[in-house]
Design a protein around this nucleic acid. Structure first.
Lengths: 141, 141
DNA sequence: TATTGTTATACTCTATAACTATA
DNA sequence: TATAGTTATAGAGTATAACAATA
């Protein structure tokens, strides 16, 4: 039984923060074996869906700073999950692709996401999931 | 116009993360002048509401680790916003209170929270705010 | 034994600033 | 000039482990 938080418990931003934290904790436990963070999985996912994507595109899609994106991509490259090659038509851009090991890791991650997402969605009725999705989108779009 | 994120955009956890990030960014800009983070404001708020509260209580209410709580309280104490005194009935516990400066800072923070929260809630109809609050609570409770 | 506070440590995320190369 | 990548740097948050004092 959590401590009563009083008036702050009525603040939407406060509840969003606690909900986010709870999901992150579950994610971290769930992905401990794969040793992947939310951000890393997101980058693997987007790179899988859009081979040749550049860091700037990732940054925009995931609403991150370029430097933050750099750090995440660099780590995934060091682990041999992502390969980089200069883009022929624009030499400033570097095209990203998953390596064979990256595709394999993403396959496992995708299965883990499904069960993680199921845990989250099982807390709601189907209509509630759609409603929550719609409301959350309005905040970040 | 954000980049199309594809299938990952249907994941509830993904949207929760982006929404949380957007709110944190707005909060940070909004509180730049006061130089306070979400966590720091939460601690000030709870300490204001419950004078004599201990770090363990804060940790439980804010769903944080004890060590994390320690770091936040310590920083607020160093800034002269929080005072600590050993609890008479349980010498392990340390009672926390806001100093005069702390009360003043919290007063300003409370006004800033109101306008920040208004920005957030203005993105929704009244019924939607209540619905979102209810759904988020279910995740972290 | 259990709880509270504490310290040390480490990693992720986040952002800013400044630099290089290319468009 | 604007964009893409890069590096250095710094701070916040998160968590684990281990310790001392007290219950």
């Amino acid at each position: 039984m959590p401590t009563d938080v009083g008036a702050i418990g009525e603040i939407l931003g406060f509840n969003l923060r606690l909900a986010h934290g709870a999901v992150v904790r579950h994610f971290t436990e769930h992905f401990a074996e794969l040793d992947l963070t939310q951000k890393q999985v997101s980058v693997l996912w987007l790179t899988h869906d859009q081979p040749g994507i550049a860091q700037t595109d990732l940054a925009q899609a995931l609403q991150m700073d370029r430097a933050t994106t750099m750090a995440i991509v660099h780590k995934l490259e060091a682990r041999g999950l992502i390969a980089r090659q200069p883009s022929p038509d624009d030499k400033r851009r570097i095209a990203l692709r998953l390596t064979v090991a990256g595709e394999e890791a993403f396959g496992k991650a995708r299965a883990a996401i499904e069960s993680h997402e199921k845990w989250l969605c099982d807390q709601f009725k189907p209509g509630e999931v759609a409603a929550l999705l719609k409301l959350l989108r309005r905040i970040h779009q």
